[in-house]
Amino acid sequence: MTDSRAATAAAKRRRLTAAAATVLHQKGVERTSIADIAQAAGVPVGNVYYYFKTKDDLVEAALTEHTATLDALTAELDRLPDPRARLQGLVAAWVAQRDTAARYGCPIGTLAAEVDKRDPGGLDESAARAVRRLLGWAAEQFRELGTEDPDGHALTLVAGYQGMSLLANALREPGVMAREGDRLLAWLDSL
């Protein structure tokens, strides 16, 4: 394969992965077809199977995409001067996505809930890996802050996000994210 063809193939796979992440988040796993993802990526449906053999492969790619987005966010936050500022930045990033959360929920959380209800096939573990990555990063921040039970604090923080995301989505009320984000920020200030 020439460099040009390899680059074209990589770009097409990248478009499919990004489209899968977006469409699956917006429509859900069961309501999304491979044709929906192909259309969003601007790729003929038949070409999808060259890159992804099954719909589950696309769900896996979407989870990988969401994890990469999370990794990029935490890498950016790691540039902040102290762990409290990093945790506050995380909460601010969540609140900034309040309109999306109110409409579709948390990208990783909603996929995790959906794949858990399907036949076991490893997707539930992929979703759990993404959540564990966030928990690990948050625990490290709490550890640097010198708090007792940094893992418990990380769980509280991520559970707070998942709860406010779920409620904002259920109520179709972005303000839930803003109000609960303020509570999380106040809690972080109190530690």
Rank of each mutant, 00 (worst) to 15 (best):
T100K: 10
L135A: 15
G163L: 07
L80Y: 10
R14C: 08
Y51A: 01
Q88P: 01
A138G: 03
T74V: 15
Y161L: 15
A168I: 11
L63A: 03
I108L: 13
N47G: 13
V48Q: 00
Q162V: 02
A10T: 12
L157Q: 01
R129W: 07
L58V: 12
D124K: 15
I34T: 08
R103F: 12
A96T: 04
P150E: 09
A11H: 05
T100I: 06
R13P: 01
F52R: 00
Y51C: 01
G163I: 03
G122R: 14
T147I: 06
A159P: 04
D116C: 14
L87S: 00
N47Y: 05
T156I: 09
A170I: 08
A170C: 03
G42F: 13
T17K: 01
V176D: 03
Q39C: 07
H153Y: 10
P44C: 12
T110Q: 13
A112E: 08
D151R: 14
R15F: 08
A72N: 12
G181F: 01
A186F: 02
V45L: 11
V48T: 00
A93I: 07
H153E: 06
L70S: 15
A6W: 04
D124N: 12
T32G: 02
A9G: 05
G152Q: 13
T64L: 12
L171K: 11
A102K: 02
A35D: 15
L166K: 10
T110C: 13
A154E: 03
A102R: 01
G105K: 07
A92C: 05
E60P: 04
L123W: 01
E60A: 15
T32Y: 02
E140V: 06
A40P: 03
M164G: 02
V158P: 00
A6M: 10
A41W: 10
W94P: 00
A93S: 14
A35E: 12
P107H: 06
A6T: 07
A130L: 09
P107D: 06
R132P: 05
R98A: 09
E173Y: 04
A62Q: 04
D151W: 12
K53C: 02
A19V: 02
D189Y: 03
A10H: 15
R183M: 11
L155P: 01
R84I: 02
V115F: 13
E30G: 04
A18Y: 07
N47E: 14
H66E: 14
G175H: 02
A75S: 08
A18F: 08
T147H: 08
R31N: 14
R118V: 06
G109F: 08
S4Y: 11
A11T: 15
T32R: 05
G42Y: 12
Y104M: 05
W137D: 04
G109T: 07
